[in-house]
Amino acid sequence: MIKNLIKLAKRKKPADWLRFLLTWTSALAAIAILLYIVGFILVKGIPHIELSLFSTTYTVENQSLFPALVTTLVMVAMTLLIAVPFGVFSAIYLVEYANRGSKIVRLIRMTTEIIAGIPSIVFGLFGYIFFATWLGWGKSLLAGCFTLAIMILPLIMRTTEESLKSIPDSYREGSFSLGAGKLRTVWRITLPSAAPGIFAGIILAVGRIVGETAALMFTIGNVIQLPNNLFSQGRTLALHVYQLSTTGLYVDKAYATTVILLVVVLFINYLSSAVERRFLQKLR
């Protein structure tokens, strides 16, 4: 930055100064907003973090967040388990197998774009009507994670598609020219090379799952308990924060819970980038 400033001082065009000022203020503003939000939550929340928040049961006296924490992790795992294979395999079909530019490809792409644009509350209502009521699953973890899976499917498909497309055709040609078939080429060459991009998509998806409230409100139920089977009800951390703060009685606890939510998000991000690094090491 100092170097740039010196360079800038040598040239005296006002337009250069203006550009410099604009880019730096917008960059600083973006960072400042993030720091403000995080700082605000930490200041409001940390004083209210107590050991009792991590008790295994939630009572009226002790608004434990532990059941919600476990439910969140379970939901992340289950939703990814459903959405990732679906998303990755459909992306493989679109990029590697379907004729580029064919009608079906355009139709699938349009559909995913539309799904990506639907507000999450609509998914909530759909999940309630379809999974909870029509399929008779009731408000349950299962109904919740299927709803979320539909919601994050376009994200995973899109990021996988983009990273598969960015793999140079010369890799595929190299593989085919050795007598490898399509399946082996996709499985051993294209997919491993595209893995970093796919991981990035999964991290984004995890962020959406952890932060989602509207789509879960009508599908996962509201009972605060440790999950014991697929059809039990539950509350994720984000939903828990929402409920705590709307009742107006436990706002302090809501802040404390938000701090934990932040930690969980950071931890998951760290974990996935660690996995990605391990993977890349094997590859390079």
Partner: peptide, 14 residues
Amino acid sequence: KRVGMVFQKPNPFP
């Protein structure tokens, strides 16, 4: 497999 190929730009796998 019987007819190998080498391309214009080196294309080793990553």
